[in-house]
Design a protein around this nucleic acid. Structure first.
Length: 976
DNA sequence: GAGCACTGC
C-alpha cells in the first residue's frame, strides 16, 4: 500500500491496509502474505518521508517573486487587496462619438507612452474573405473597440450571435500587435466544438496556419511555440491558472459567451478581475475582454466587488434577420406536446418552404412527436408523391379546416433585434380567449392565416406533403445528429424536433420557423441532501428569445410561442447562473488549490448559496482534502475557521485530477495491489454520463418496437455477465461499468460492438480518452506507477475487488445507506427501503441496478435521483467493519473495549485497542475495530504498563519479577 | 419495477 501523495501522516490509505489485514485475518487467509505486504509498506513509507523532505527543501528555495504572488493570492481570498495605481488610469466608459474617425486604432495606440503595442501586423486575407468581413457590423466598430481596449484594462463587448465578435476581435488585437512579441491572445469558449471550429475559421480568415492560430481542449490541441491566437475551453484556462497564476504568456484574455454563465467562466472572471491589476502592478499589463449578449452585462458591470471601477461596455450590432414572434392566445395547461404537433401541422400545410425547428424538453417527448409527425406526413425515400393518410392526420386535417373558417388577423410585426423582453401587446387576448369555447381555442391561432399563396397551396396539397422529421438531442449518436445539417431530400420540408441542445450548442441551417413550447427540463439539487431531480419548468425570457433567434439565421423567420404574452412576461428574465444551482465541492477544491482559503470572499459574478459553500467545505474536510478546523475556541471563530480551511497535501493531489473530489480521492488511494488501472476505469465510467443506451423510449414503428425489445433483453443479459461472478458481484453497478468498458475495449471499441451491446459509442470514446488523461495525471504524480491504458485489461481478482470496494467506500463515505431492519419496519413504505444519514424518507436501489433485489445491509451510491421514489444509482455493497476504519470522520467512537485488551504495536510504536462506534446522525451500531488508543491519561497508563512488562523495550522484561507491585497497578484508578 | 436537460477540466 502506498498513497500517491507524500505525507508523513499516513491517512486513510494506511487504514485501507489495516482493514485488509483485519478482513484477511478474520477470514484466516495466508498470513505470510500479509507480512510481506506490510514489509513493503514500511519501505515505501520511508521513501515517502524522504520525498517529503525533498519537497520541503525545494519549497524553501522559492523566490521572493513567488512569495509576492502567493501573498497577492491570499489577499484575494481575504478581499483586502489594494488596487493602487491601476484604477487611476481607468477612464469612464467610452461611446462611439469619442472615436477618432481618421486614425486607425493601432496608430492611436502607438501614441500612448505606456506598454501598448506600437506595431501594426499585416494580415494577408483573400479577397473573398475581405469582402465577407466588410459585411460584418463589428468591422465598423474596430476603432471604438481598440480604443477602449488600449485605454482600459477590462472591456465588455456586447453583441448577439451573428455580430462576428468571436472571429473578429482576436483579429483586431492581432493586427494591433497584441500578439507580436512576448505574449499571445487567449480566447475561452464554453464548448469544445466552438473552440475547435473558431480556431479553424480564424486561421482561414487570416490566411495563417494552425501553428499560429490554434486550439486547446480537454483531450487535444494543436498549440505550438508559434501560436499567437489560442482558442480554448474555459476549463483549460482555469487549469492553466493553477500552474501559472498570473498567466504570463497571455497579453489578452477574451472570455466569450460570458452571458451563458458557465461555472468555469464565472470563476475565470472572478480570478481575472484580480489577475489583471496584479499584472499591471508587475509592469506586464494584461487586457481582459468579456464578450456577452447584450442583456446580461449588469452582472459584470454592477458588481463592485468584481470590478470596483465600472468597465466600459461597447455595443455591437448583429447581422440577424428579423424574426416575427407570435404568441398563442391561450396557454395549453398540460399538453404542450400535442400543441406542438398541431402547430407544426399548420405550418407545414400553410406556410412557404423553410425548415421547422421545434423545442421540446426531453428524449421521450422528442421521439413521440417525431413519431406522430411521421405518421401524419409520411415520407418514404422512393415514393415521390402520395402516401396514405392515417386516421390521426385526418383528424388533424378536420381540426385544421375548422380553424380555417375563422376570420383572419394581421400579423404582429416584431423585429427581434429591437425586441424588448416584454412582448408587444397583441390586443386583448385574454378576453378573446375567454370568448372562445374550448374546441375553438385549440385551433384559434390565426397568426397562421398569413399570405395568400401560402394558404392556397397548403390547401391543395393537404393530403400528401412529405415532412422530413429528425430528432435532435445531446445523447443522440453523432451520425444521427449530423443528419440535421444536411439538406432534406428533394420535395420535403425539414422538421427538427429538438431539446435545448439546439438553443446554444448546435445551430441548424435554413430554419425559418421555430415552434417553442416554452418549457425546459432542468436538474435540481437539494442543497442539504444532494438529492437531485429533474423538473420541467417555464424557460426564461432570455432563453425564449435565443430560441426565437434560431429562425433568423439565413432569412427572415417566424417564431411560434405556444403560450400567451402574459405568461411570457411572467418568465424570469434570465435563468439563474449554474453556479447557484449545483453542488460546488469541485470548484471549492480548485480554489483552495489556488490558496484561496476564504472562498466565501471570492469575487464571484454571482456567489453560490452559503449553504452550498458550507456543504462543499464539510465534504472536503471529511475526504481529507482540507485541513481539519480547530475543535476548541470561541464559537464565532470556530464558524469562521470552518469556512476557511487550508488545503491538505492529499487535497493538492486530489485537485490535480480532473474529476469530482469524491472520485479524485478514490484515485489517490488506489496505488495498492494493482488497483490503479481499475480505479481509473471506474472513475472514468462514473464521470461520463449515460453509458448505456436508453430503450424505454416510444419507438417510431412497430418494427422498431420489436427491435428495441430484443436489444433490451440482450443488454440485460450482458449486464448480468459484466456484473461478474461470486465476490465480484458485490462491487455492484461499478463492476458492471468496469466489465462493460473492459469488454468494449477488448473488442476494439467499435461502433458495432456498442450498438450490439447497448453501449453508447460516444460515451465509450469519452471514457477511453478520460482513462488516458487520468493515467497521464497519475503517472506524472507518481512516475514509478508506470501505468498505461491497457485495452486487454484483465478483470480484477477477487482480492482486488475487495480493495476496490474499500476504495469506493472511502470516496463515497457520505453516500452511504443501510437497509431497514425487520424490527424497524413500521410503515409499509419502508419495505425494501434504505435509510441514509441526511434523509428522513426511504431510498431504494434502482431497479436497473445489479444489486436490485440483493439487499446488502450497507451500500454506497453514486447519486440519488428522485422520480416516483428516491432511487440510488451506481450502487456498491460495503461491509460494516470497513466503515469505522475508512470513515472515522463520520463515526463516534465509544470507550475502548476491555476484551480484547489493548496492546502495544511494535511496528507503529502505538497503543492499540478495539473500539465500537456509531455512525453519525443515524446512530447505526458499528462493530468494534482495532484503532489507536484514544488520547488521554489511560493511554499513558497502558504505555507504562507495557513498558514495565518489557513489551516496549525487551530488556526491561528481565526486571519484571523484581518489581514491588505488578505492572497491572498502572491501570488502577487510584494509581498516579 | 423504471422514464435524465445541457456543459467544461
Amino acid at each position: 500500500m502506498k498513497l500517491l501523495y507524500t505525507t508523513s501522516k499516513l491517512g486513510i490509505g494506511e487504514r485501507i491496509y489495516q482493514t485488509k489485514r483485519t478482513i484477511q485475518e478474520a477470514s484466516a487467509t495466508c498470513p505470510e502474505k500479509i507480512n510481506s505486504v506490510s514489509g513493503a509498506n514500511k519501505k515505501r513509507r520511508r521513501l515517502d518521508l524522504e520525498l517529503e523532505a525533498e519537497k520541503k527543501s525545494e519549497s524553501s528555495d522559492s523566490s521572493d517573486e513567488e512569495e509576492e504572488i502567493k501573498e497577492a493570492i491570499e489577499k484575494i481570498a481575504t478581499h483586502s487587496y489594494n488596487f493602487g495605481k491601476v484604477e487611476e488610469c481607468i477612464k469612464k466608459p467610452l461611446n462611439s462619438d469619442q472615436a477618432f474617425p481618421n486614425m486607425p486604432a493601432h496608430q492611436k495606440a502607438a501614441h500612448k507612452p505606456s506598454s501598448k503595442p506600437a506595431v501594426f501586423i499585416p494580415v494577408d486575407r483573400s479577397p473573398e474573405i475581405q469582402e465577407a468581413r466588410l459585411k460584418l457590423p463589428i468591422l465598423a466598430e474596430e476603432q471604438v473597440i481598440m480604443e477602449a481596449i488600449n485605454e482600459n484594462p477590462v472591456v465588455i463587448i456586447c453583441g448577439e450571435t451573428g455580430s462576428g465578435k468571436t472571429t473578429q476581435v482576436p483579429q483586431f488585437l492581432y493586427e494591433a500587435g497584441y500578439a507580436s512579441s512576448n505574449g499571445i491572445i487567449g480566447i475561452t469558449e464554453p464548448r469544445r466544438v466552438a473552440a475547435v471550429s473558431m480556431s479553424h475559421r480564424v486561421a482561414k480568415e487570416m490566411n495563417l496556419s494552425h501553428r499560429t492560430v490554434s486550439y486547446q481542449i480537454r483531450y487535444e490541441g494543436n498549440v505550438t511555440d508559434e501560436t499567437k491566437i489560442k482558442f480554448m475551453t474555459d476549463g483549460v484556462l482555469l487549469k492553466e491558472i493553477q500552474k501559472d497564476f498570473l498567466l504570463l504568456k497571455y497579453k489578452v484574455i477574451i472570455i466569450d459567451e460570458a452571458h451563458e454563465r458557465s461555472v468555469y467562466t464565472d470563476i475565470l472572471i472572478g480570478l481575472l478581475s484580480r489577475i489583471v491589476p496584479l499584472r499591471g502592478k508587475k509592469g506586464q499589463p494584461m487586457k481582459l475582454i468579456i464578450m456577452s449578449a447584450t442583456l446580461r452585462v449588469e452582472d459584470f458591470t454592477d458588481n463592485k466587488k468584481l470590478f470596483p471601477t465600472v468597465p466600459p461596455a461597447i455595443q455591437v450590432d448583429a447581422r440577424q434577420f428579423p424574426v416575427t414572434v407570435h404568441f398563442n392566445k391561450k396557454t395549453p395547461v398540460d399538453d404542450y406536446s400535442g400543441e406542438c404537433f398541431r402547430k407544426v401541422c399548420k405550418i407545414h400545410r400553410m406556410l412557404p418552404a423553410g425548415g421547422i425547428l421545434v423545442f421540446l424538453t426531453g428524449q421521450a417527448e422528442v421521439h413521440s412527436l417525431c413519431r406522430r409527425l411521421r405518421k401524419a406526413f409520411p415520407f418514404h425515400k422512393n415514393k415521390t408523391e402520395g402516401g396514405e393518410e392515417n386516421e390521426e392526420s385526418v383528424e388533424e386535417t378536420k381540426k385544421f379546416k375548422k380553424s380555417k373558417q375563422k376570420k383572419t388577423m394581421p400579423l404582429p410585426k416584431i423585429d427581434l433585434n429591437n425586441y424588448s423582453v416584454l412582448p408587444v401587446d397583441e390586443g386583448d387576448e385574454d378576453r378573446e380567449a375567454e370568448m372562445d369555447d374550448e374546441e375553438d381555442a385549440v385551433g384559434s391561432d390565426l397568426d397562421l392565416d398569413l399570405g395568400d399563396d401560402g394558404l392556397e397551396e397548403g390547401e391543395k396539397s393537404d393530403s400528401s406533403l412529405p415532412l422530413y422529421v429528425l430528432p435532435l438531442y445531446s445523447l443522440l449518436a453523432s451520425e444521427k445528429q449530423a443528419k440535421v445539417f444536411r439538406p432534406p431530400p428533394l420535395g420535403t420540408r425539414l422538421c427538427v424536433v429538438a431539446t435545448n441542445v439546439a438553443e446554444t450548442s448546435l445551430t441548424i441551417p435554413n430554419i425559418k420557423y421555430v415552434v417553442d413550447c416554452g418549457k425546459v427540463k432542468k436538474r435540481f439539487y437539494d442543497k442539504v441532501t444532494g438529492v437531485s431531480s429533474f423538473r420541467v419548468t417555464w424557460t426564461s425570457q432570455a432563453s425564449a428569445n435565443q430560441r426565437a433567434g434560431r429562425a433568423g439565421r439565413t432569412e427572415p423567420g417566424h417564431c411560434y410561442r405556444l403560450y400567451s404574452s402574459a405568461v411570457f412576461s411572467d418568465f424570469e428574465k434570465f435563468s439563474p447562473p449554474e453556479i447557484t444551482r449545483r453542488p460546488v465541492e469541485d470548484l471549492v477544491l480548485q480554489m483552495k488549490a489556488l490558496n484561496i482559503e476564504k472562498v466565501i470572499n471570492f469575487p464571484f459574478p454571482t456567489p453560490p448559496p452559503t449553504e452550498a459553500l458550507a456543504a462543499a467545505e464539510e465534504l472536503l474536510i471529511a475526504l481529507g482534502a482540507l485541513q481539519k478546523p480547530p475543535k476548541t475556541g470561541r464559537l464565532k471563530e470556530l464558524q469562521v475557521a470552518k469556512l476557511s480551511c487550508p488545503i491538505s497535501s492529499l487535497g493538492i493531489t486530489m485537485a490535480s485530477f480532473p474529476v469530482a473530489p469524491r472520485y479524485a480521492k478514490m484515485l489517490a488511494l488506489s496505488k495498492q495491489h494493482g488497483c490503479l488501472p481499475y480505479a481509473i476505469t471506474i472513475v472514468s465510467a462514473m464521470t461520463v454520463r449515460e453509458l448505456f443506451e436508453e430503450f424505454e423510449r416510444p419507438a417510431v414503428s412497430e418494427e422498431e418496437t420489436e427491435k428495441l425489445k430484443g436489444k433490451k433483453a440482450r443488454v440485460i443479459q450482458m449486464q448480468r455477465i459484466w456484473a461478474g461472478q461470486g465476490a465480484s458481484q458485490k462491487l455492484g453497478d461499478l463492476m458492471v461499468m468496469l466489465g462493460a468498458v473492459g469488454a468494449c475495449e477488448y473488442a476494439g471499441c467499435t461502433p458495432k460492438f456498442c450498438e450490439v451491446n447497448g453501449l453508447r459509442y460516444k460515451a465509450m470514446l469519452e471514457i477511453r480518452r478520460l482513462r488516458g488523461q487520468l493515467t497521464t495525471a497519475v503517472n506524472s504524480i507518481c512516475p514509478d506507477a508506470g501505468l498505461f491504458v491497457d485495452p486487454k485489461m484483465k478483470p480484477p481478482s477477487e482480492t482486488q475487488v475487495i480493495y476496490l470496494r474499500q476504495i469506493v467506500l472511502a470516496g463515497l463515505g457520505d453516500h452511504i445507506a443501510r437497509r431497514i431492519q425487520a424490527e424497524e419496519l413500521l410503515d409499509e413504505k419502508w419495505k425494501n427501503a434504505y435509510k441514509t444519514p441526511l434523509l428522513d424518507d426511504p431510498v431504494f436501489i434502482h431497479p436497473n441496478s445489479a444489486l436490485f433485489k440483493q439487499f446488502p445491509e450497507f451500500v454506497v451510491y453514486q447519486e440519488i435521483i428522485e422520480t416516483t421514489k428516491m432511487y440510488m444509482k451506481g450502487v456498491s455493497a460495503v461491509e460494516s467493519e470497513w466503515i469505522p476504519i475508512l470513515l472515522p470522520p463520520y463515526c463516534h467512537f465509544e470507550k475502548p473495549l476491555a476484551i480484547p485488551p489493548p496492546f502495544y504495536c511494535p511496528e507503529t510504536g502505538r497503543i492499540r485497542c478495539h473500539r465500537p462506534s456509531v455512525f453519525y446522525r443515524v446512530g447505526w451500531q458499528l462493530p468494534a475495530v482495532e484503532v489507536d488508543y484514544p488520547e488521554g491519561i489511560d493511554r499513558y497508563k497502558y504505555f507504562a504498563k507495557f513498558l514495565l512488562e518489557g513489551k516496549i523495550i525487551k530488556q526491561l522484561g528481565f526486571y519484571k519479577r523484581c518489581l514491588l507491585s505488578s505492572p497491572l497497578t498502572m491501570l488502577k484508578t487510584w494509581s498516579k
